[in-house]
Simulated assay, not measured.
Amino acid sequence: MAKRQGTHQTTLRDRVVVSGIGVHSGKPVAMALNPAEAGTGIVFHRIDSGDMQPIHARIDRLHATDSCTTVAFDGVSVATIEHLMATFNGLGIDNVVVEIDAAEVPMMDGSAAAFVELIDQVGIVALAAPRRFVKVLKPVRIEHNGAFAELLPHNGRRFEIDIDFSSPLIGRQAFIVDLDADVFRRDLARARTFGFMKDVEFYWSRGLALGSSLDNTVVLGEDKVINPEGLRFADEFVRHKTLDAVGDLALAGAPILGTYRSYRGGHRMNAKIVETLFADSDAWTYVEAPVPAKRDLVHDQMPVRLPAAAFGPDKS
């Protein structure tokens, strides 16, 4: 099927259900992804909470970024949303209602691959409404303890991620990508979260990361990767950090047209740069893609590289 530019908002063709283990609680989690109308955005419903208050996956609902990204509303939260949000952002999915019966998204294999496979079961459909983007108009930057994150004007969706670990198993790695659905599937979706054995043992001793295992985490010992199968990519570590950034920047509530660059970043800085961007009304604007004549726009992949000239400003 021919690819189409990402001019329309999208959703899932049908409901799809998945279950897994929460990486922090170690308890089973069931989750359903449901189609949603244009303008809904990504919304979580904690079906175990009783009141079913919607929790919008937006920066104004950010609750915590300590070891994962958590959104909350009215005392109800959903944690570890970054890989699922990266999948929506990477595949170009704008509107989904996520029903979940626990306080965290299932970890699956520590990457976004299972969520991509889940969405492929039902497919993606375009809606009769234009997609809205957040366009970066001028540079914004934050720094902390030698690390930095910045957003720069760019006629596309570029990520330039640089990590630097003292461990010789990781060292310094850089990854640059112009994001679209093909790139996300091929280069980012399968990159797994990682951690050091000494840290895992520390968390376990305090009742944390109870669902963490070699099945969902790349674990590093003093001199080797503990997982018997090894790495999926030689630079899997920086690819996973890029995956996290794609998920965290989705808290903007719309795809960001610009370059995101970070050095030694993480969930906290990823979220903070979105807050910093929105705090300066001169640094960004909303733009919409023009909608072509109505026709069948069902698709399974939707690249989002779009020229700036195709958009008109809209700060509403």
Rank of each mutant, 00 (worst) to 15 (best):
A86S: 15
E99Q: 12
N216T: 11
F115D: 05
T217E: 10
A254L: 13
S167L: 09
L137A: 13
P130I: 02
L169A: 04
T7Y: 08
V98W: 08
Q5G: 06
D223V: 06
D109Q: 10
G123E: 12
S213V: 06
Y260N: 01
P303F: 14
K315C: 00
F148V: 00
L84S: 01
L306R: 14
A293S: 11
S213P: 08
V177Y: 03
Q5S: 07
L188G: 06
D314K: 13
R261M: 02
T193L: 11
S166M: 12
G90K: 07
I124R: 15
N155Y: 03
K272N: 03
Q301A: 15
L84H: 00
D235L: 05
T70G: 07
P292Y: 07
L277Y: 10
T242C: 03
I81G: 02
V304A: 10
N270K: 02
L231S: 03
S67I: 13
L243M: 12
A147Y: 01
Q121G: 10
G207W: 10
T87F: 04
E222L: 04
V219P: 05
E236G: 00
N216Y: 12
P255D: 04
I55S: 03
M302A: 09
S212P: 03
H63S: 14
H154P: 01
T7N: 06
R185Q: 13
D48M: 00
D187V: 09
D223E: 14
S19V: 11
T10V: 03
V78N: 09
D101A: 07
A38C: 10
E150F: 00
A289W: 01
I142H: 01
A309H: 06
R264V: 02
R131C: 05
G50D: 08
F115N: 02
L188K: 06
R157G: 00
A86Q: 11
Q121S: 14
G146H: 12
R232G: 13
M31Q: 07
I21E: 12
V17G: 00
D48Q: 01
N216D: 11
A279D: 12
A234K: 14
F159G: 01
G6W: 09
F73R: 13
V71D: 09
T65F: 05
Q5P: 03
Y286D: 07
I100H: 11
R157W: 07
Q9C: 05
R295A: 15
R4Q: 14
A234N: 13
